[in-house]
Design a protein around this nucleic acid. Sequence first.
DNA 1: TCTGGGGTCCTAGGACCC
DNA 2: TCTGGGGTCCTAGGACCC
Length: 422
Amino acid sequence: MYALVDCNSFFCSVEKVFHPGLEGKPVCVLSNNDGCIVALTPEAKAVGLHRGDPIFKVQDIVNRHGVKVFSTNMQLYAAMSRRVTRILRRSVLHVENYSIDESFCDLHGYEAHHDLVEFMREVRERIRLWTDIPVSVGIAPSKTLAKMGSKFAKQYKGYQGVCLIDTEEKRRKALELFELADVWGIGRRTLEKLEYLGIHTPLEFAQKSEAWVRSHFHKPGLQTWQELNGIPCIDTTEVLRNQSITTSRSFGKMVTELESLKTSVATFSANCANKLRAQGSVCSTVLVFVASNRFREDMPQYSHTASHTFITPTSDTQVITQAALQCLQSIYMPGIMYKKSGVVVSGITSDSAVQLDLFDTPARCRERRELMRALDNINQRYGAKTLHLAVAGMERQDWQVRCEHRSPNYLTDINEIPVIKI
DNA sequence: TCTGGGGTCCTAGGACCC
DNA sequence: TCTGGGGTCCTAGGACCC
């Protein structure tokens, strides 16, 4: 059996930990650049807000109902996520951290010594007590069914936060009641296809023959079908190293000048390099992309990418930035109002086994590594923006994102910890 | 005026190679 | 008049997830 532990309206719940007065009130968290709603409480849903709404289109609802709006603060959410995961790992032997707000627990063998529902209720209580984050738990023989269970647990108070799907009867009933569109692995296009084929509930899909499923779908569809029938086949085992790292942003204001784009690409390159070094990796390819504002049909549209492959895999900020800027130069087109740029590094391998360039000297490589270590140490100690390449810009840039409602970094910055007045 | 960011996997055409 | 098969890389886009 698997348990899926899902944090309820996670980003909103984190904000509520530090603003306890918001309990029971409508709250939402925006995407980067204060663009769209990415997380909202049931109270915010009840007044007519939806995930994905651009905030400027629903501003009147926000004003009318006094909805509390936060800018996104990933640093804060990631810190809280680590706390929740740590409690889980102390409680259950095998935990797979699937996303910032979800973890799968492998409960194989636990049923011999525990009542699974009671056991997970205790875990849930512990998380609530130690972090103040409410979670919902689904327990089932496959991960897809466990995810369904967690949604039932969230929806119906009677489950007290934990829903177990362990018998044929419960599985049937769950498949009958669940929305097809909410099944893990069924997206917009698959939903359209299923409905076209006359399938309207997960149960109808699960009851089709394997041959039928194989004839209409590829591997992902077949896996979902098996999982719905209680046959576990989705492996979410954490990959040790990611395949790519992206840093990209939509700009607060549109940008036309190459010089401005350069500061953005240099900033994002440095960010990617930092992330590589932080996880002990190097990359062999850097890719740069730029794009105009796709929502502005009155303006000429343009988007393009360019990439560079390194002879020696690297995590050196200077090397990556230099290559990225050359890529940018090659795709920059004057006269375009740019809305977004980004840097992607890939071909990621461990920095402990790098094949050196025949014509480079080991001493020089060592010096570069020492330089990067010094840079990281200084930035860690005195703040992330203490040392950076001049090409990343010295003043605030006009492309920088808006975030007008950001909470302090209560958990990760000593200068921003909560102050309690008695 | 304002419309997110970070991932994975897959497909496909064109350019180029032998 | 006849014009293959197998491969890589680049670029773009679709589908799904959180």
